[in-house]
Amino acid sequence: MDPKLVEVTQLFSRFKAAFARNDFDTCVDLLSQLKVRLTKFPSLPPSFQQTPNAVEELKIARDIYEHAVVLSVKIEDQDAFERDFCQLKPYYMDTCGIIPPSPQEYPILGLNLLRLLVQNRIAEFHTELELLPVTALENPCIKHAVELEQSFMEGAYNRVLSARQAVPHETYVYFMDLLAKTVRDELAGCSEKGYDYMSIAEARQVLMFSSDKELHQYIAEEHPEWEIKDGSVFFQKAKETQPCKEIPSLQVINQTLSYARELERIV
């Protein structure tokens, strides 16, 4: 067996031991060492060289990155998640036929979808979704994310929140908690447009705060333009389109002149 592979395998088993102990500092440390070691394997993306150890190397590399993704969720680092996922993705997309599909594939893809939803990157969410085969949509992890997106788009926020009880995988809880915050922002945005005013108690209920203090703090931080008086929250509506009283003369003159110029060219 290749000595480099042996070394990585040993290091990885130490990583897994630390991971099982929830010793995340050691994990992060070992992971960066592992990643450096992985760069020395020629069979990994993007070069995909056909070496005798290719299958073994690809498998262990995929396993390492899968753990890296889960680790990033546990240490609640979204940027690390994105980086690790990007590195992992080629193993799912381009290694078909070289190594068998991983059992972790759909949970992690679903996790990524959820992350995009939390960060309100809906366009990317759909771009990722298009990459999945039809059969994948039946998978509970993917389905969970897809249904969340639907409820989210519809505005059925209650359904989004109640989905937290039915997470298909323990790692999903972190993102579901983040999603609750996204939902609150959405609700605040909707309320601003949908209501003229609301009593403080109602606002607290709608925005899911447990105390008035939290509500006041939230308004002060996120929506300083809202007004609180007489026990109610008054939303400042965006200026509506006023019927125009003035003719925009300069613009009209410019337009007319340009028509005249063009017509002159034609005649």
């Binding site: 519809e154 505005g155 209650n158 609700l187 909707c190 309320s191 447009k193 209501y195 009593s199």
Partner: peptide, 24 residues
């Protein structure tokens, strides 16, 4: 009812309908 309320609120925000909600 709660679902309908949030759906209506979102539709208003997205400009699909022009209305206001009376929560009380």
């Amino acid at each position: 009812v709660a679902d309908a309320e949030s759906i209506v609120a979102k539709a208003i925000r997205d400009g699909a309908i022009d209305a206001t909600i009376d929560h009380a």
